[in-house]
Every structure is written in C-alpha cells, then in structure tokens.
Computed example of a mutant assay.
Amino acid sequence: MSGAVAGRAWLVVLGGVAAAVHVGKLPPAIPVLRDVLGITLVEAGFLLSLVQFAGMTLGLLAGLAADSLGLKRTMVAGLWIVGGASVLGGWATGAGTLLALRAVEGFGFLLASMPAPGLIRRLVPPQHMSAMLGVWGAYMPFATALALLCGPAWMAWTGWPGWWWLLGGLSALMAAWLARALPADPVQPPAASRDWAARIGQTLVAPGPWLVAAAFGVYSAQWLSVIGFLPSIYLAAGIAPGLAAAATALAAAVNMVGNLASGRLLQQGFTARQLMSIGFVTMALASVVAFSALLGPPEAGALPRYLAVLAFSTVGGMIPGTLFSLAVRLAPSERTVSTTVGWMQQWSALGQFLGPPLVAWVAARSGGWQWSWLVTGGCALAGLVLAGRTSRLPQVRGH
C-alpha cells in the first residue's frame, strides 16, 4: 500500500474521529450541565443518546444518498453540519435547545461516519481491507477517550460552551482538509441515481444486512451505556473529577485494542462468529462483576470492578471491527455497500439511543447502578444469538 493511499485512508479515519468527538463530548459535561442548566439524570441520558436520533431514523436513506451523491461529498457535508451545530450549541441556555441541536449534530455525525467504510474500501487494496476496517472500527473509542480525557480540563478553563466551540471548529477544519486531500468521487452513470428503490429492496431482502445491523445495535447499546455514565458513577462514588476523567478515558481507549485486533485475527483465520462470541460473553460477564452487588457496596472492590470495565471495553472492541468487515462482505452487491453500512449505522444508533436512557431509568428506579448488568447482559445474550445466525450466511466478497 503506497504512502499516499495509506495517508488518505488514515485521513478518513481522522475525519470520523472529528465527527465522533461530538458523541464523546457529552459524558464529561453531564455533571457540569446538571449543575448549570439543572438537567435531570434521565434528560442527561437523552442528551447522551439524542445524537443518534438521525442515524436511528435516516441511516438507510443516508447510505443510499451517499451511494448516489458520492462518499467524499457526503462525509465533508456531515463534518460541516456537526461542526456548525456544535458551535451554535455553545450558546444554548436550556435543555430544550441543547436537545434540538444534539439531534442536528447526530445528522451531521451520520453523514460524516457512514460513508467512511466505503471510502476506505475504495482507497486500500483488498488484502489490506480487513486490517484497515479494524482501524476504522477504533474511531469511536479513540474519539470518546480523547473527549473524556481533554473535556474536564478544557471546561474548567473555558466552561462547557468553550468545549462545544472547540470541537465544532475541529470538525470544520477536518471538513476543509478532506475536501482538499481526498480524490474526487467517481462520476455516477445517470441510471445509478435513479435505482434507489432497487438498492433499498436489494439491501432489505438480504439477511446479511439485518443480522450485522442488529448485532451492532445490541453492542452499541451496552457500550455507550457503560462508558457514557462512568464519569457520573465515579463522581457519585466520591472519586475526584480528574481521576474519574482519566479512568473513563482509559476505559474507552482500550476498546481500540479489540478493534485493531479484530482485523488482524480475521486475516489470520479466526472466524467472525468466534470473535463476536468471545466479545459478547466477555461483555456480559464483565458487566456483572462491574455493577452487581457480588462485590458488596459500590465503594467496595473498586479495583476488580474497574478491571472488569477494562475487560468489557477491550474484548468487546473486537465486535465493531468484525462487524464493519462483515458488512462490506455481506452487502448483497457492490452498489449496496454504503446502503448496508447505513442500515447497520441505523441499528447502531437505535441501540445508542435506547441504551443510556434505559440504564438511567433502571438506576433511578433502583437507587443505584447495581442492576445495570441486566440491561447489558440482555444485549450480550442477543448478540450471541445473532453471531450464530450470521455465521451461517455465505460471504459474497472476500477480505
């Protein structure tokens, strides 16, 4: 793989990071927003997940549009939208305005992230595709860790509006860079923009897109629920904000290890079912250790609980890298790759939209986080079933 081609593929990953930091920017801001704007815990759960509303409702259509309008154009437009909404969000004075702009950010995030696997597939040779898609699978945990680590210090200096403005400017900068550095989208034949109904139908009648999409949904629901509320959980336990931010950032960052490993392991002969099963089983067991009353009250067994969270994120990270590779290989045709990824993104967004409010509701009803494992464990069990079903499908494209 030439240096120029590799550099462009990595630039696509950086563009995804610049969009994904808007998902990760909220967890360290939740305690601040609750103090400044009086946001409740359940409202915080919806703020955490509302960025996924557009993906939850428009993922398939966005994938279809990207196939028709061009992957590069779609990604650049998404970065401009998410950046602009973040800048405007810095002037919000109430939860309602912030919620509305989070929905706009979600639309931009969808447009910026959904075309990336197709762009990477276009930019790298087939023999490097699984490994590079494993790298792409790490964009979300890297962005989340970056936001969790930098957010508290930046907000202590500028307040939460300055945090929104900083990340909005970063997204706009990446939009301009991608527009200049990536090759132009290939010219589509006139018929390609008119066969949208056929592409939707071809995608939705095939079992592969449904299975990988549902598996991504149950993975995303539990991962964001755990990582998103860790700062609040640690602060409630009396842990200093700086230490809570660093611990949560590490928990998000180690997810990259699993993502990167998934591409290498797939190339070495491990099956997608093996990697997904290991990931879901580990997430289920680790969440029980991390949140249940097995180790006594929340302040007891702090180290084993935290190690369980690290295992939850690290080993679970093999799931998204595996699913991105599967989505490309199980798309029913060459022209439906982005549509399939869009459908997967739609289910991922649905999981991220429903997971955090559900966990917050369970915590509010039970007076603590000790029953959170019921939600994450249910998601993991569903993921195991889906992994078994996915393994029975023929893969129409090679690595």
Rank of each mutant, 00 (worst) to 15 (best):
L110Q: 06
P117Y: 00
C150F: 10
A112C: 04
P115R: 07
G162Q: 07
V124D: 02
A143F: 06
A116N: 09
S113N: 15
L170I: 15
A147M: 02
G169T: 06
G162H: 11
S171E: 06
P125S: 09
V104I: 15
A147V: 02
M114I: 12
S113M: 14
A116D: 01
A138D: 09
A131D: 07
R122G: 13
A116M: 09
W136H: 08
R180E: 10
V104F: 12
A145M: 13
L166Y: 02
G118P: 03
A131C: 02
G108V: 01
P125Y: 01
F109L: 15
W136M: 06
L101Y: 08
M132S: 05
L123Q: 06
W157M: 14
R102P: 08
L133Y: 14
A138P: 08
A176C: 13
R121Q: 12
A172S: 08
W164G: 10
L167R: 11
A138G: 09
E105A: 06
P152C: 13
A116P: 02
A145E: 10
W136I: 00
W165Q: 14
A176I: 12
G159D: 12
C150R: 06
A176D: 06
P141D: 07
L110I: 04
S130H: 10
A131E: 14
M132R: 10
M132V: 09
G106T: 14
A153F: 05
L173V: 15
G162T: 06
R121G: 00
W165T: 11
L178D: 07
A175K: 01
W164P: 08
L146H: 03
A138F: 06
A156T: 13
W154Q: 13
G134S: 09
W163C: 02
Y139V: 05
W177G: 06
A143K: 06
S171H: 08
W177R: 14
G159Q: 07
W136E: 00
L148E: 14
P125A: 14
P117K: 02
C150M: 14
A143L: 04
V124I: 11
G134Q: 03
H128P: 00
F107N: 01
P126L: 05
G108P: 03
G162V: 09
L149N: 07
G159S: 12
L133G: 11
L123E: 04
Q127T: 12
M155S: 15
P152M: 10
A147E: 03
R180L: 12
L110T: 04
A172L: 12
G168N: 05
Q127N: 13
W177E: 10
L119S: 00
W157S: 15
L173Q: 06
M114S: 15
A116E: 02
G151Q: 09
S130N: 12
P115T: 07
L167Y: 11
M129A: 10
P117I: 01
L149M: 15
A153I: 11
L123I: 03
W160F: 11
M140P: 08
W154E: 13
G168K: 09
G106C: 08
G159T: 08
P117V: 00
H128K: 14
I120E: 02
P125V: 13
P141G: 05
G108H: 03
L148D: 13
R121S: 08
V135S: 02
G137P: 04
G118F: 00
L148T: 09
V124S: 04
P125C: 07
M129N: 07
T158I: 05
A116I: 00
L110R: 03
L166H: 02
W160M: 04
